[in-house]
Amino acid sequence: MRAALAQLPLRRRRGASPFLGRLLRDRLALAAALVLALITLAALLAPWLSPHDPFETKPIPFQPPVWAEGGTADYLLGTDGQGRDMLSRLLHGTRLTLLIAVLAVALGGGIGVLVGLFAAFYRRLDGVLMRLADVLLSFPAILLGLAFAAVIGPGMGAIIVALAVATVPDVARITRGAAVMIMGQDFMEAGRAVGLPDRTLLWRYLALNCMSSVFVFLTLRFGQVILIGAVLSFLGLGARPPAAELGMMASQGRDALLFAPHISTLPSLMIVLVVLCANVLGDALRDTLDPRLRNT
């Protein structure tokens, strides 16, 4: 055992934390990263991996998955209430859900990071920007979703905008918090003392040093966004039928929950899996990228 441990590559020197605990955490994170990568790959390749057309209805509704009684190998995960292949819909649904989450996090996270950096760097803007963020923060994401659906009309656009808007204030606050700490560091003043212009200080000194904590938060946020997005779709504010989206699929299957539970539970399980992996990965990233541990 000891010999096996000694052979493991030690990536960083750490004194305090118990080594085995860390190792286990890292393994868990590795597993989460692998699963997430697999799911992403499958989602990306959905058009080629799908055994059937996800939109084509067949006269065999409510067929159970292959492992249940009455299932066939032709429809591995069975069919839904309209006789569409569940596996194909699951792959396409995951693809759409991930796309929505990525776009929302990129858009909202990008704006949030900018707001947070500017608030910390230009102290005069701080009050205004952060009060605006507080205002946004006081609207629940679901309410935002309803509002945008009412304005833009329900669909992909509304859900992405709503999720992005809901992401902005949190990211802005996290970024500002990290950036304010960095602003107090001596190297910011040292950079000024060398005569560096604001542009350099803002991007190369401030932003680069905040990125690790912001990145961790965005990873965790990714899981939340998928969850909220699924809720919005479940409520019928997101993707429109016949498109496949995990939240909407879970919603469509709920009438058949008693006699064909796979229609609702499979997409729900996929959501759980993706969110879980994103959270585990985010936690592990936080542990490894925490700026307070970086100097050890």
């Binding site: 190297f187 040292a190 060398v194």
Partner: peptide, 20 residues
């Protein structure tokens, strides 16, 4: 002028350099 004709060094060398 800063860094060219007038330069400055600080008290805390541990934190005065940009870590990245």
């Amino acid at each position: 002028i800063r860094g060219d004709r007038i330069a400055m060094i600080f008290q805390e060398p541990m934190t005065s350099l940009n870590p990245v």
